[in-house]
Amino acid sequence: MKKIGVLTSGGDAPGMNAVIRAVVRSGISAGLEVFGIFDGYEGLVNDKIRLLNKGDVSDIIIKGGTILGSARLEEFKLVEVREKAVENLARHGIEGLVVIGGDGSYRGALALTEMGINCIGIPGTIDNDIDSTDYTIGFDTALNTIIENVDKLRDTSSSHHRCSVIEVMGNRCGDLAIYAGITTGAEIIITKETGYDEEEVLDRLRYFEEKKQKRHSIVLVSEKITDVHLLARKISLHTGFSGRATILGHIQRGGSPTARDRILATQFGDKAVRALLNGEGGRCVGIVNEEIITIDITEALQLTKKSRKPLFELHDRLV
């Protein structure tokens, strides 16, 4: 193998640039030419590909987002679309590809491997919803962004006898909510795992106010569970707290990556290059029990998510 490519796909995550840097520099150190593919699979199909050197990735380890850009391309599921991508890779002499993204990106990488282009996936998503790895790139940075903002909201909530209802990202995964809930001392955490019972939430808030004499409360809610603005209004109507809703939104995706994300990203990028050099394809990188591993993508996509029940039980004991 003489030439490899790297692309970022799906939602951006802090630390993606650190992966790109590691892939480029590790690849060059191994005697490879490394090509950047811009705008994800869309750029692969449209031949937005160019050779990268070490200078192209200088100073990007500190930056959030992705210098290669990202995009979603539903049409990549079509064989004829992927054939065009394979033709473009062949034109550049690219034999292997590092794909940074979530489970949808993994499926594209697996399909390309089946068409003769060895691909290694790297989990880049703030949601931490790739079950073949204990942590995904971007999760720690997003978590710390949430913690910083919730801490600030608690300051103002305690001054006005308020209950702050805060919606965080996570899609189908409640990790951002549960980890942030524990680390900020949130009174209530609502995720897909906990389920949502509006009356139970109101009862618990009344209990916190009347029995525990709390002057403020924090309710953390994973996105797509309920309308947080409506919940805040009901809290104002049915408890002694004044409800206020805050949706943190895409602020959670931005910012300079934490040291943990920079280190993890660097380890993942280097591991992906070495996997390609060893002839691996259709596999993804992860960290399991502090060991950097690769696992078959098909197996990774079939894994059942580890239970977070111990974390929820810990939270309930501490409230």
Rank of each mutant, 00 (worst) to 15 (best):
residue 134 D to A: 03
residue 244 R to T: 11
residue 200 E to C: 12
residue 226 T to H: 10
residue 103 D to W: 08
residue 157 S to M: 00
residue 50 R to P: 08
residue 248 L to D: 04
residue 176 L to S: 03
residue 284 C to W: 03
residue 144 N to A: 00
residue 237 L to N: 15
residue 94 I to V: 08
residue 165 V to E: 05
residue 28 I to G: 11
residue 237 L to T: 15
residue 104 G to K: 00
residue 3 K to S: 12
residue 231 L to I: 06
residue 253 R to V: 08
residue 125 T to C: 04
residue 2 K to S: 15
residue 223 E to S: 07
residue 227 D to W: 02
residue 168 V to N: 08
residue 268 F to N: 00
residue 213 Q to W: 07
residue 20 I to P: 05
residue 100 I to W: 02
residue 318 L to F: 15
residue 102 G to V: 04
residue 43 G to P: 06
residue 249 G to R: 00
residue 253 R to Q: 12
residue 179 Y to M: 13
residue 315 H to R: 11
residue 51 L to E: 12
residue 107 R to F: 09
residue 48 K to H: 15
residue 288 V to P: 04
residue 259 A to M: 13
residue 243 G to A: 05
residue 2 K to R: 15
residue 229 H to T: 14
residue 280 E to W: 10
residue 138 G to M: 06
residue 123 P to E: 01
residue 81 V to P: 05
residue 277 L to W: 03
residue 22 A to T: 04
residue 301 L to K: 09
residue 257 P to M: 06
residue 143 L to P: 02
residue 247 I to R: 13
residue 144 N to S: 11
residue 82 R to P: 00
residue 166 I to W: 08
residue 63 K to W: 04
residue 244 R to E: 11
residue 188 I to V: 13
residue 120 I to V: 14
residue 27 G to W: 01
residue 271 K to P: 02
residue 285 V to L: 05
residue 180 A to S: 15
